[in-house]
Nucleic acid binder design. Structure first.
Lengths: 161, 161
DNA sequence: TAAGATTGATATGTCAATCTTC
DNA sequence: GAAGATTGACATATCAATCTTA
């Protein structure tokens, strides 16, 4: 057992600020979507890729890959969105195991109505507060961390085999 | 109504990477705490300040200010932690409206047992992946965003008055 | 009246078990 | 057996309403 390397003051401050910022920002984003369009951030995460896809539809599997959500969460949330009329589900024509999700006219209308306010909020509390150097740094750091987490998953899978 | 300034490619990439990273990292942190110590990230957020306080206890109000949680979430979560024996509640001696939360011996034991693995994970997937310049940049950016969000809240309160 | 805290209803996220099809 | 998806049980988060005391 190796001696623990505790965080020094700067490291701890970064870690704390990361948490505080993440919570406060996601709360703000949620409030904006809810107040203006009666959508949750979770709704938004699914509605955007659907609205950007050519056929306004996508396989559940692909939505999962894009968002990083697990199957269970996806299934539950799509069911709720379906019950609110935002999306519809139907069997995948090319793979009988699959399910396709399609944006309804109401869902499309919701995305279009919410997008300007959403982007405005992203700019106001995030993007527009950063210089282009900072944007580059943050993107690089985020992608580095995701890569580390993803590599690890792959390694674990390999070990399991 | 002003024309919407949509995100350009670099901005969109940062915003996406921010989401992906946040989700993947918080998932990893949660798994580490759960597997090693049967604690959630939420437990951890409350246990740490309690364990660092001089008397191993704190007012609910102050826990709220530190974590940014709202009263309701705090109350529910403290109740659950109490039922698991991690903390105890008692009336605040100086303000009859208040409640104090105290770390139990079991709670203290849980913190001490989990801390090394937690820090190790924070380092492995976050802190140790960054240069000191990047740490400084990220801290500054996070704090700037929190300030923007907080100022806004204060303004709203002022307007409401 | 405002602050501190709790509660119940509801929405959301996670885990394990299950089912069907590849 | 593995992949795609769903379900039920449970844990957690949020909102509005409530209660007590400053």
């Amino acid at each position: 057992m190796v001696e623990t390397r505790w965080l020094d003051e700067k490291e701890a401050r970064m870690w704390r600020s990361f948490h505080t910022m993440g919570r406060a920002l996601s709360r703000k984003m949620d409030q904006q979507l809810t107040n203006d369009s009666n959508l949750s951030s979770a709704d938004w995460e699914l509605l955007v890729p659907l609205s950007e896809s050519t056929e306004q539809q996508m396989r559940v599997r692909d939505l999962g890959r894009l968002t990083g959500w697990d199957r269970s969460r996806l299934s539950h949330h799509i069911r709720r969105m379906e019950s609110r009329g935002l999306v519809a589900r139907f069997d995948c024509p090319t793979d009988a195991r699959g399910t396709n999700v399609e944006l309804t006219p109401m869902g499309r209308h919701a995305v279009e109505g919410a997008a300007p306010g959403h982007v405005e909020t992203v700019r106001r509390y995030f993007v527009d507060l950063l210089s282009s150097e900072e944007i580059a740094t943050i993107t690089a750091v985020n992608e580095r961390i995701v890569a580390a987490l993803t590599d690890e998953d792959t390694e674990c899978e390999r070990e399991a085999i």
